[in-house]
Design a protein around this nucleic acid. Structure first.
Lengths: 343, 343
DNA sequence: CTGAAAGCGCTTACAG
DNA sequence: CTGAAAGCGCTTACAG
């Protein structure tokens, strides 16, 4: 009676041990393991009991060798890492994906490809079939890794619409434009009329779309666009500070700012307050993301919530579907205005 | 002449293809792959050329099946995840470990074990040999996972000294006590005498040691310990706020605080400033970590730098050594006082 | 529904 | 230094 004792790293039981315990062939054990089709209830039961008794756990390497699948997926970050690691959104996304995958018993391999060398190494690793698919975090256009993976036929789903790759690659994104519209409409409803904007990088969909939403709503509201009220950042806190300084210098009586990320909004807030202006009395500040950064400020940030939990869950769902043979798909998720004290 | 064309997911070349190309046996190819011992220079060369021509990449599953190693390691987080994901330190550590492992071409599997269920699942996964070793992030005492892994003989290295596991498990840690001493000495040198402290959780080494350093330096300086100046937090920002409120209520003329993490120090800073006190004029605030949180505040935080890059590099080094058969080891790394505007 | 058998791609003694 | 061969633990047609 083999017990699955711990202690030491003994040879773990194999399918062969289970078969012997259960009094069936190894083929039958394997069938039970793989869904239980074409197995009699009695055999099924005997095998399950034997598995329990022996403490059997499938050897994934042996399985992978024959199925050709690795039963793992990569989480690939091709951004310069410093920035992304500074951003709390990244954490939420990584955690959500890890958990969603855990549900399917699929491990997540973390891959960082910040440099050219790393990109080459990782592309090679992935195309060699060491993962079944890739969750891609890289919003900038012209990402060579994304293109290479797509060409190699690796199942792929991006977080945010990958500019330049057309709709041949799956992606999951929040409705950036709509979120921006909500925020700017909110600022207008507060009576603000000289509304600035600090955009994201303009080679990212978040950068482009959120700015588009801003322009649309102002235009619809009959307000002339003042280009001095538009500056760009790179989603970093410090770029928010720089942006706010520029805005205040160009339009000292600006009465509100829509900032395309909470982290940048932190920087904007600091600069606005340092200039002696009160938030929200003199200048209302609206962020984007509803990341932990939004509640770390004083006053806390009014912002647009990105549904990160759903985004990560959908990314995993779409990726697994694609690994299972389905065609690519794009998923757009709604955002939500979260009112706090900064507006 | 086979080119390693991309496109589609064709059957990749095997060791057999390489052997044919090179005109040698598969055994010889394998020997070249595994260090090139007992291989003539000419065979060596022929094989390398064939590998290049065919675009051969080893099939890790086949290799693992026979070696019994997975050539991968797990990064295991057993904390309730919310907190850790809020903490920028976590990112730095995760990134550092991933990069250090990439150097060795070893993938990192991210494992989150926040709930009892997840802990069970992951322990099973690990002890089944799916990873060769584990980088453990879990500072609380009495962690059942750590104990189980140790018993199962899984190579393990913790970040921070694991309370209760004795020295049978490897760990890498910053010199917490010494860092705390530096900070409190610095505050004393500024002329502050009513110095409060917000500690970390007292069932963690960071909680215990940093408090010990605080007590030591004050005692050495001939200052009587005032227990009303000592409160505990859990490393979260909000616990820093709560701690500061308690301290200010108990000792309104407190003139400095040593806070055991930058994130908590953010909360302390907010509360102190909200109370109308100036930082650093009225109350000097010192943090711990030198995480990105330290420069996100206004004024920026004086803090104790934890050498995260070295910590992660050492964790990986010690783990790989242990996987290679070496005995456990503890590594203590020095910290550094970083002076900014908050003191 | 079930067993016997082939084979996935590699490594490693074993002879030479 | 090198080749032939066994075998790692599994899955999957193939016969029954």
């Amino acid at each position: 009676m083999t017990m699955h004792s711990t202690g030491g790293r003994r040879k773990p039981p194999t399918i062969h041990d289970v078969a012997r315990e259960a009094g069936v062939s190894r083929g039958t054990v394997s069938r039970v393991l793989n869904g239980g089709h074409y197995v009699s209830p009695s055999a099924q039961e005997a095998v399950n009991a034997a598995i329990r008794r022996t403490g059997y756990v499938v050897n994934r390497h042996a399985r992978s060798l024959i199925t050709g699948r690795s039963d793992s997926v990569g989480f690939l970050l091709t951004e310069p890492q410093e920035r992304f690691f500074e951003d709390p959104n990244f954490n939420v996304l990584l955690r959500g994906c890890t958990q969603a995958l855990a549900t399917h018993d699929i491990p997540l391999l973390l891959m960082l490809a910040g440099t050219e060398d790393e990109r080459r190494r990782i592309t090679r690793y992935i195309t060699a079939g060491h993962v079944d698919g890739v969750l891609l975090v890289s919003s900038h256009s012209g990402d060579p890794v994304a293109e290479q993976l797509r060409e190699a036929g690796v199942p792929l789903v991006a977080c945010g619409k990958p500019i330049g790759l057309g709709s041949k690659v799956s992606y999951v994104a929040a409705d950036d434009r709509d979120g921006a519209r909500d925020m700017v409409r909110h600022l207008l409803s507060l009576g603000r009329r000289r509304i600035g904007v600090v955009t994201g990088p303009l080679d990212t969909p978040g950068g482009v779309e959120r700015l588009a939403g801003y322009r649309e709503v102002l235009t619809e509201g009959g307000i002339e666009i003042d280009e001095r009220l538009i500056v760009s950042g790179d989603y970093s806190r410090s770029s928010g500070e720089a942006g706010a300084e520029r805005l205040l210098a160009q339009v000292p009586d600006m009465d509100a700012v829509f900032v395309a990320s909470d982290l940048m909004a932190q920087g904007v807030l600091a600069v606005v307050q340092r200039s002696g202006r009160r938030v929200p009395e003199d200048v209302a500040v609206g962020g984007f993301d509803d990341s932990p950064a939004a509640t770390a400020t004083s006053p806390e940030l009014t912002t647009i919530r990105q549904p990160w939990d759903r985004i990560s869950a959908e990314m995993v769902r779409v990726l697994l579907a694609q690994i299972g043979g389905e065609d690519p798909a794009a998923v757009i998720l709604p955002t939500e205005l979260v009112k706090r004290r900064s507006t």
